[in-house]
Amino acid sequence: MSENLTLVQAVRDGLHDGMAEDDDVLVMGEDVGQNGGVFRATEGLYEEFGDDRVIDTPLAESGIIGSAVGMAAYGLKPVPEIQFSGFMYPGFDQVVSHMSRLRTRSRGRFTLPMVLRAPMGGGIRAPEHHSESKEAFYAHEAGLKVAMPSTPYDAKGMLIASIRDPDPVVFLEPKKIYRAFREDVPDDPYEVELGDAAVRTEGEDVSVFTWGAMTQPTVEAAENLDRIDVEVVDLRSLSPIDFDTIIESFKKTGRAAIVHEAPNTGGLGAEITATIQEEALLYQEAPVERITGFDVPFPLAALEDYYLPEPARIAAGIEEAFDF
């Protein structure tokens, strides 16, 4: 049995199933209880599981993440929500100083089976600080896994995999596509393995690596390019990254473009490019193109479309890689 769900509904479904199968799983954060989450990602969970397992916390990100670390170390499996990834930073110390490295620091005595969820990214005309893409911060941090689904099916499967994972996962949800389209999502719990990329469109000429809300415009750009046979790979998992799939695709095409909405400098595009150089240099026929956000603070809504890569800019980058 399955249901036709949006991405945010699939997140909600994943949380539900994760809680239903394991009493240790709980959800906590600002407005996740009676309000059902500002994006409705926790709708109905408060009514079903009660206020011991769906917890409205005070407005304090360090408190939320830090106490989730304590709960996880003491045997629960918390799934804290930070309302927007742009508000993570009061709790960032907890993420990078403790959540990522408690296993290491305690030599395995204390482990953190927790999932830190946050909506991220631009494209919904949100106010200041609500639109950034900072996935590279988390992928840069050893000890964390980082997931960013781009489809409802993956959202549920990756969330369940994350909840069951023995290590802490930062689960970033591209809110631009929370309700962009629906997909059949199985009713029963299932896993989409973390660390496993998905080839969305097969092709022979140029490999394009992307993730999150950029997947759809990249597929669209690929479809518009009649003269180029494009392969689109949706990484889905940003730590660990599925470099096997990336290298295999690149060896086939010898040309690559990377699309991400995060700023160019220090973005994950650089990591992918460097790995291609290390592992497949002799296959390379063109410079790797990066089509990304600019190295400026994310602009307010009136200019956000100009900041975000969209099909025309993506297509231009793919053509550069092809025509070199």
Partner: peptide, 24 residues
């Protein structure tokens, strides 16, 4: 300099495709 280069690229994209193509 790097930002200047990005701005130049941005303007070239606008010139080539027009602002309409860059808008949602």
């Amino acid at each position: 300099q790097r930002l200047e280069q990005q701005l130049e690229y941005f303007q070239s994209i606008r010139d080539e495709y027009g602002d309409e193509a860059l808008l949602e």
